[in-house]
Amino acid sequence: MTVFVQNLINGIISGSYYAVLGVGLTVTWGVLKMINIAHGDFYMIGAFMFYTFSILMGFPVVPSIIIGIAAVFILGMVMEKFVLAPSLGRGKFGDTPFILTLAIGILLQNIAQLTWGEKNVGVPYFNDAIFQFMGLTMAGQRLIVAAVAMVTLIVVMMVIKKTRFGWAISATAQDTFSATLMGINTKQIYMVTFGIAAGLCAIAGCLLAPIYGINPWMGGSIQLKSFVVCIVGGLGSVEGSIVAGLALGIIESYVTQFLGSGWQNVIAYALVIVMFWFRPAGIFGKME
């Protein structure tokens, strides 16, 4: 029973980050109508930014994280403005922006390799405490990380549902033409949305860095996981991504327990294929 609960908690913790990453990707799809294959690389850059500010420059943890996230947010907006914006809407489903994100991904990876070297680096845990509670062991680090993810998800939901800006995002996603007529600067919304998606990646990157370490290729598997999350949740559905992210984390946690970590990812990807077979639009997606 304890093992069961322990796995559940571990699953929820990693799942909350899949959710954060998936939400970014799904919002990008909803608003810009393109899939971003450089998503994982923004995650990687976020982690490196945190490393730079906290280890190399000696800033305290919280300011480093905030600066790191802000830097990636701006990087995302710059990339959107100068690389993606001129190509949006080209190709049948936005093939051109898709190819461009591919190039952005290579670019970011190479910049990371040149700047920080082709090696693993690490940052220390924020908190070394270990909590024992009814036979469950919880590292303080993981609890902090989970709390931040939950708060992030709640804030994102609130912003989208309740604020003027959130309405503008929904309006642009549903009908760009009409949104323009309402006085919404849709190009700006595109830019900010992409920036926010990148910023969400950076949040995940910064907070997971102490646990998983940092290297220029760390974005690869996270990239595919985020895809899995937003497909299973239904492309464009924020709620779907959150549910799918948590579910994926929990499933992975049990699979690792029973089959070993080598097969954990196989199951996640196989899940997508099965999903496509039975419900191509995702759990929360609308059937076409």
Partner: peptide, 30 residues
Amino acid sequence: AHKLVTKGITLAPEGRHLFPELTVKENLLL
């Protein structure tokens, strides 16, 4: 284009172009 509405110019487009997944109230307020 998005500045026209503040100058007092609006268009009710052909085919209505409502935001289908927002409520009527949200549509109006937008």
